[in-house]
Protein backbone atom coordinates (compact mmCIF):
# COMPACT_ATOMS: atom_id res chain seq x y z
CA UNK A 1 0.00 0.00 0.00
CA UNK A 2 2.49 2.60 -1.17
CA UNK A 3 1.00 6.06 -1.54
CA UNK A 4 1.95 8.60 -4.21
CA UNK A 5 4.66 11.06 -3.12
CA UNK A 6 4.95 14.63 -4.39
CA UNK A 7 7.79 17.05 -3.67
CA UNK A 8 7.07 20.21 -1.71
CA UNK A 9 9.26 23.19 -2.45
CA UNK A 10 9.47 25.93 0.17
CA UNK A 11 10.87 29.41 0.03
CA UNK A 12 12.79 28.61 3.23
CA UNK A 13 13.62 25.63 5.39
CA UNK A 14 10.53 24.33 7.22
CA UNK A 15 12.64 22.71 9.88
CA UNK A 16 10.52 23.92 12.77
CA UNK A 17 7.09 22.76 11.57
CA UNK A 18 7.57 19.04 12.07
CA UNK A 19 7.21 17.32 15.42
CA UNK A 20 10.27 15.63 16.86
CA UNK A 21 10.76 11.99 16.02
CA UNK A 22 10.55 10.09 19.29
CA UNK A 23 10.76 6.48 20.37
CA UNK A 24 6.94 6.47 20.31
CA UNK A 25 6.32 7.86 16.84
CA UNK A 26 9.44 6.77 14.94
CA UNK A 27 7.64 3.94 13.07
CA UNK A 28 4.99 6.40 11.84
CA UNK A 29 7.45 8.94 10.44
CA UNK A 30 9.83 6.35 9.02
CA UNK A 31 6.96 4.66 7.18
CA UNK A 32 5.70 7.96 5.77
CA UNK A 33 9.15 8.64 4.32
CA UNK A 34 8.97 5.38 2.38
CA UNK A 35 5.40 5.97 1.23
CA UNK A 36 3.31 4.17 3.83
CA UNK A 37 0.72 5.57 6.21
CA UNK A 38 0.81 3.52 9.39
CA UNK A 39 -1.25 3.75 12.51
CA UNK A 40 -1.44 1.79 15.72
CA UNK A 41 -3.85 -1.07 16.12
CA UNK A 42 -4.76 -2.43 19.52
CA UNK A 43 -4.06 -6.15 19.76
CA UNK A 44 -6.70 -6.52 22.48
CA UNK A 45 -9.75 -4.70 21.06
CA UNK A 46 -8.51 -4.41 17.45
CA UNK A 47 -9.37 -0.70 17.20
CA UNK A 48 -7.13 1.71 15.33
CA UNK A 49 -5.98 4.94 16.87
CA UNK A 50 -4.18 8.13 15.91
CA UNK A 51 -2.03 10.06 16.77
CA UNK A 52 0.55 7.76 18.27
CA UNK A 53 -0.20 7.03 21.92
CA UNK A 54 1.05 4.39 24.32
CA UNK A 55 -2.32 3.28 25.70
CA UNK A 56 -5.44 2.28 23.78
CA UNK A 57 -8.06 4.94 24.63
CA UNK A 58 -10.83 2.38 24.11
CA UNK A 59 -9.71 -0.54 26.27
CA UNK A 60 -6.55 0.54 28.10
CA UNK A 61 -4.29 -2.07 26.56
CA UNK A 62 -0.66 -1.17 25.91
CA UNK A 63 -0.21 -3.90 23.33
CA UNK A 64 -0.22 -2.59 19.79
CA UNK A 65 0.91 -3.41 16.30
CA UNK A 66 1.34 -1.14 13.30
CA UNK A 67 -1.11 -1.33 10.38
CA UNK A 68 -0.90 0.29 6.97
CA UNK A 69 -3.88 2.36 5.80
CA UNK A 70 -5.10 2.62 2.20
CA UNK A 71 -5.32 6.39 2.51
CA UNK A 72 -8.85 6.39 1.14
CA UNK A 73 -11.45 8.25 3.10
CA UNK A 74 -13.75 11.23 3.12
CA UNK A 75 -14.01 14.83 4.26
CA UNK A 76 -15.08 14.88 7.91
CA UNK A 77 -14.73 18.63 8.49
CA UNK A 78 -12.82 21.53 6.98
CA UNK A 79 -11.68 25.12 7.40
CA UNK A 80 -10.23 27.63 4.96
CA UNK A 81 -7.30 29.84 5.92
CA UNK A 82 -7.74 33.41 4.72
CA UNK A 83 -5.02 34.82 6.94
CA UNK A 84 -1.40 33.74 6.76
CA UNK A 85 -0.01 32.50 10.06
CA UNK A 86 2.96 30.56 8.67
CA UNK A 87 5.21 31.89 5.92
CA UNK A 88 5.61 28.35 4.54
CA UNK A 89 1.95 28.44 3.51
CA UNK A 90 1.77 32.09 2.41
CA UNK A 91 1.75 31.29 -1.31
CA UNK A 92 -1.23 28.95 -0.85
CA UNK A 93 -3.63 31.42 0.86
CA UNK A 94 -6.53 30.82 0.80
CA UNK A 95 -6.01 27.13 1.46
CA UNK A 96 -8.21 24.43 2.91
CA UNK A 97 -7.34 22.11 5.78
CA UNK A 98 -9.56 19.12 6.29
CA UNK A 99 -10.07 16.48 8.88
CA UNK A 100 -10.09 13.32 6.80
CA UNK A 101 -12.00 10.33 8.02
CA UNK A 102 -9.90 7.48 6.66
CA UNK A 103 -10.91 3.93 6.24
CA UNK A 104 -11.10 1.93 9.43
CA UNK A 105 -11.98 4.88 11.58
CA UNK A 106 -8.83 6.96 11.84
CA UNK A 107 -9.09 10.75 11.42
CA UNK A 108 -6.12 12.85 10.33
CA UNK A 109 -5.78 16.62 9.83
CA UNK A 110 -4.07 17.66 6.62
CA UNK A 111 -4.08 20.23 3.84
CA UNK A 112 -6.34 19.72 0.85
CA UNK A 113 -4.35 20.05 -2.39
CA UNK A 114 -7.33 21.59 -4.22
CA UNK A 115 -7.70 25.21 -3.15
CA UNK A 116 -10.58 26.43 -5.30
CA UNK A 117 -13.29 24.08 -4.07
CA UNK A 118 -15.96 24.23 -1.42
CA UNK A 119 -15.59 20.88 0.30
CA UNK A 120 -18.66 19.05 1.49
CA UNK A 121 -18.66 16.63 4.39
CA UNK A 122 -18.58 13.12 3.00
CA UNK A 123 -16.69 13.94 -0.22
CA UNK A 124 -14.23 11.13 -0.99
CA UNK A 125 -10.52 11.91 -0.64
CA UNK A 126 -7.26 10.07 -1.15
CA UNK A 127 -4.05 10.53 0.79
CA UNK A 128 -0.95 11.76 -0.97
CA UNK A 129 2.39 12.19 0.74
CA UNK A 130 4.27 15.43 0.41
CA UNK A 131 8.02 15.12 0.74
CA UNK A 132 9.54 18.03 2.58
CA UNK A 133 13.15 19.22 2.42
CA UNK A 134 15.15 16.91 4.66
CA UNK A 135 13.28 13.82 3.45
CA UNK A 136 10.32 13.51 5.80
CA UNK A 137 6.85 13.16 4.31
CA UNK A 138 3.54 14.55 5.59
CA UNK A 139 0.05 13.44 4.59
CA UNK A 140 -2.05 15.76 2.42
CA UNK A 141 -5.36 15.02 0.78
CA UNK A 142 -6.86 15.23 -2.69
CA UNK A 143 -10.38 15.07 -4.10
CA UNK A 144 -9.23 14.06 -7.57
CA UNK A 145 -8.70 10.39 -8.14
CA UNK A 146 -10.72 9.51 -5.09
CA UNK A 147 -13.25 6.74 -5.61
Amino acid sequence: MTLPIIERVFPGEPDDLLPAVTSDNEPYWTALARGELLTQSCTQCARLRFPVMPVCPYCGSTNTEWRALSGEGEVFSWVRYHRCFLQEFADLIPYVVITAQLDRGVRIIGRLLERDVIPVTGMPVTTILERWPGGRCVPVFSLSGAK
Binding site: P14, L18, A20, M53
Partner: peptide, 17 residues
Protein backbone atom coordinates in the same frame (compact mmCIF):
# COMPACT_ATOMS: atom_id res chain seq x y z
CA UNK B 1 4.89 20.42 18.23
CA UNK B 2 4.06 18.36 21.30
CA UNK B 3 3.40 14.67 20.93
CA UNK B 4 -0.34 14.53 20.43
CA UNK B 5 -0.55 17.99 18.87
CA UNK B 6 -0.98 21.53 20.11
CA UNK B 7 -3.21 22.66 22.99
CA UNK B 8 -5.86 23.78 20.50
CA UNK B 9 -5.32 20.95 18.01
CA UNK B 10 -2.53 22.71 16.15
CA UNK B 11 -0.83 20.63 13.47
CA UNK B 12 1.83 22.93 11.98
CA UNK B 13 2.88 20.67 9.09
CA UNK B 14 -0.73 20.76 7.87
CA UNK B 15 -0.68 24.56 7.90
CA UNK B 16 -3.12 24.22 10.80
CA UNK B 17 -2.14 26.60 13.57
Amino acid sequence: LRQGGGPHGETPHAGFT
